[in-house]
Amino acid sequence: MAGAWVFAEITRDGPHPAAFELLAHARSFDDDPTAIALGQGATEAAAELGAHGAATVYACDDPVFAEHPGRPAAHVLAGLIEAEAPDVVLFAQTYDSRDVAGRLQGSIGSALMGNATSIADPRHARAEIFGGTKIVDVELAGPAPPLILLRPKSIAAEPTGGTARVVPLEADVPEDIRGARIVERHEESASGPRLEDAKVVLAGGRGLGGPDAFAMLDELASVIGGAAVGASRAAVDAGWVPYSYQIGQTGKTVKPDVYLAAGISGALQHVVGMKGAKRIVAINKDADAPLLAMADLGVVGDLFQVLPALTEEIRRRKGS
């Protein structure tokens, strides 16, 4: 059994989307790649993997892989590699797959390449460095199979509509490598849309005068619905809101449909983080504030009067 193998990471929601991309990478030099799917739902995932070009899927539904990080998967892979001798094994550059690949490399001793963007054949891959300004072609020496981590989104997944042959696997994982146990998986949940994704962003600056005034923006955001609240560096530096609110050079870059800036003068440091907004509304007391000059709608006035009035008007129109 030779050819290209793909480590298809199985998550609680089925195969990781990057697995389909890996199959596309593999199919660039091997028409019948093999996928290895370990974890609950692996057999079920085989159909989808087959539909994206996997000719064979080794599947094991044992819960051990979700209970212990990295080592069981690396152990099973090492055994399988020894038995079947693939030419190359591809991994997605995700946290979990990196963990498995690193451990696997430690036990079988072949070359491991990280951050690849494409692969030409089992021994030749490509990476981009210096922010993509230089392309490096890498030849991988050492015992077979080389292990290559490919960056997600470096190729588009392509459905083939095929069907995979499913080979069930037994998880023979000895007790001594079940060392660490996954107790809990926690995903940071954020209330409201993420700042970067929101269609409407309301940002406050030094002109708000203090943390309490951000409540006005929160209220406006909830009245609009689906709006996110951000801030300028000055407001973050003053400690009024956490750093996660910061928009600008050293904070987040936002490109909403509407960007409303209250009490933000528009220093370059801030502007570079929001200049991609489709419509800019600025409220400022100071008629010379640079942000007023670049706004589609500039309001010279006291934000403590303008904001509540705006909230009231939107509420009234939505209510009617």
Partner: peptide, 9 residues
């Protein structure tokens, strides 16, 4: 992290 924007720029 935050210096990345400068290098990219």
């Amino acid at each position: 992290n935050e210096a990345g924007a400068m290098l990219r720029g």
